[in-house]
Write a protein that binds this DNA or RNA. Structure first.
Lengths: 207, 207
DNA sequence: GAAAAAACTTGAACAGCCTCATTTTTGTAG
DNA sequence: CTACAAAAATGAGGCTGTTCAAGTTTTTTC
């Protein structure tokens, strides 16, 4: 069934993506020309466009790798979060943050975000939005889990609250990638400061 | 003192900005080529670059016009907000939202946001960030005002809360401009749904 | 008022993303 | 094995944002 043609196709796509991950990280997304990428992947420029619709597409594909991985890792925290509302929320968020620079540079994040805002109706833009949705859903699931466990007040609706938390962790992350000088440690402190009062407000009162 | 040269310079800059506001709205930012802009402003392409550093710069300048205006209008609400925490917060946010499409299309907003994320260290990117800061400061000032008036619990710190509210109104606005089909009415309803529970949590309890 | 200097304008040339007519490779039928 | 069809690869060329050396206009100097 899987003939020569299919194998070669899969191989070329893999080569292009691999070349992109390497070159974008090492030289920066902007600095990498399509020609460099094509050379590295041993294909022509035209061929790159048979596999990806635009330069930004290739970047979004690398971002997707990273986010899929972090979502899978977050699942464990959602299913069995640490005790305490604040600790549980921060555990999930820190998971996201700490993993974020594993394959991607800040410049790559910035560009991917810019693409998703500027071209939301392209396949690439939608793909990035879908990734965001997965993370948002995970935060909501965490709140629901905490409520079921009796740590969050029963009258709290997990959906708007989860969205609110997601918006804030997302904005904090945007600030982080916009500022090359900011460290992961500073990012963690910043989000903790925002989450602490919120956690107190939604937790079962007795503390 | 103000010689011929200065007058001509000011006039050219005005012509370029005016051409940009018109053309970007009518034909779309992407579709307008620098050459079109230069022709309309009766200058050469090179001259445009003496006044603005890049195409995106011109866009940011038009966004600045819009935001400066909305900040000025918001000042009235901050100084004398309507009664009720929820009403006051929504009054300010609706002010922002309702004004947002006066000079700018959704595409223009998307592009401006993309620039500010992708190139935060350029003058343009910083200028957009400064505008954001002004709006954020206004939200914080409003919360402080409400607290002084005894409508918000005294133990609430206006700074993190104001930032949280700003993050959410900002994200909701980003969703709005990303989705061409979304109406202002839907945007208003979406932010109201997010702000209602928050307003209840921070208001003086007695309701 | 002429000459020199300074400031500004100009558009041709350049760079990089992307397209598409052509060529090459792979699969299939006789 | 040959001929044909389908699919994919190729890279020269188009398009548009940006730069910069040369030219023009305004200001200053004497």
């Amino acid at each position: 069934m899987t003939g020569l043609r299919d194998r070669q196709k899969a191989d070329r796509e893999r080569r292009i993506l691999h070349a992109a991950v390497t070159l974008f990280r090492d030289r920066g997304y902007r600095a990498v020309r399509l020609e460099d990428l094509a050379d590295r992947a041993d294909v022509s420029v035209g061929t790159v466009y048979n596999y990806y619709h635009a330069k930004g597409d290739i970047l979004i594909a690398t971002v997707a790798l990273e986010v899929e991985e972090v979502v899978a890792m977050g699942q464990g925290i959602v299913e069995d979060p640490p005790r305490g509302v604040e600790a549980a929320i921060l555990a999930l968020i820190h998971q996201y943050y700490d993993h974020s620079l594993k394959y991607l540079s800040k410049e790559m994040w910035r560009t991917a975000m810019a693409i998703s805002i500027e071209a939301p109706d392209t396949p690439n833009g939608r793909r990035y939005a879908d990734l965001d949705d997965k993370l948002r859903g995970q935060v909501i699931a965490l709140i629901a889990r905490l409520r079921d466990r009796g740590e969050v007040r029963p009258r709290i609706d997990p959906v708007p609250l989860g969205e609110l938390i997601f918006n804030n962790l997302n904005m904090a992350f945007i600030e982080f990638v916009k500022n090359d000088a900011m460290t992961l440690e500073e990012l963690r402190r910043s989000i903790a400061a925002q989450m602490r009062p919120l956690a107190r407000m939604i937790a079962m009162e007795d503390a």
